[in-house]
Amino acid sequence: MTFRLSSDTMRLAIPALSLTLLLAAVFWLQPRAMSYVGLNLLFNLAVPIALATIAQMLVMAVNDLDLSMGTFVSFVACVTATFLRDAPVIGILILAGAIASYAAIGVVIHLRSLPSIVVTLGMSFVWGGLAVLLLPAPGGQSPDWVRWLMTVKPPLAPMAIVASVIIAVVAHLVVMRSSLGVLIRGVGGNQRSVERAGWSIVAARAAAYGLAGFFAVLAGVALVGLTTSADANIALRYTLLSIAGVILGGGEFIGGRVSPIGAVIGALTLTLAGSFLSFLRISPDWQIGAQGAILIIVLALRLMLNRLEKREKRR
């Protein structure tokens, strides 16, 4: 029997496998987690991380890297907890302006051929500063509809799972099925040939950054819905978490090889890793460290499977 998996399926299989293993381990350690409420608690905080990971993935699809993700999500959270509640029109205008400036950053990076790491590094100071101006001390309150959206209890599956699935499907449709998505990935794969085919690279990059800004805005809003208030430093670790999530989900730094479904799974895996360790009764001191260890193990697994695949091909 010749049953062959396409390389895209393989790419998705490893993250899915690691998530399943981790989830099985959690259930085995704590059977009570296997319930509606348990699952919701396990994955609650994964929703904003998944959205931020999708945003990072869009930037990585055009071979760039966004180091300002964490401060940007914090900034959005501050806007959501202040303006979006008290003056929704102004709040929406500010968020739209933020998305537009993301697109503008993409244009600047492309036109001056600047290293994206440095430009987004500079922007991370700007977003951080704006967030501090808005909320010098932790505070604010989440708008009621956001709070409702994040705590609603749909039938069958908890909100965290439903939201993750919706995010994965929407991102998949945009990035893998639409012509814009193909164009964005094409810029990452071979910029020159996309250009020769008559497409505007500037527009593609602006679109990728604008979409990334949009998903990052959603991440900030969702985060405030969960925490009910905001702080200028609320999401700083999202920069590194989102990069790790994309890589865990089978994405790569160059070549426009990304996988939206994988990215969501990667974000879920990172969130679950924390709960897994507390169930193992490992001291909270080692929580962050164990996330690093899980990252290493998954990457080692991926290398092994890739080697197996190559050996199969050689035969």
């Binding site: 600047v108 001056r112 600047l114 290293p115 440095v118 430009v119 590094l121 500079g122 922007m123 991370s124 100071f125 700007v126 977003w127 951080g128 500063g129 704006l130 967030a131 501090v132 101006l133 010098p136």
Partner: peptide
């Protein structure tokens, strides 16, 4: 100037230097 303005200026300066 306050901490917020300071951070914003630092970021803008980094970006203008690299440009």
């Amino acid at each position: 100037l306050g901490a917020g303005i300071r951070l914003i200026m630092t970021g803008l300066i980094i970006i203008s230097v690299i440009m």
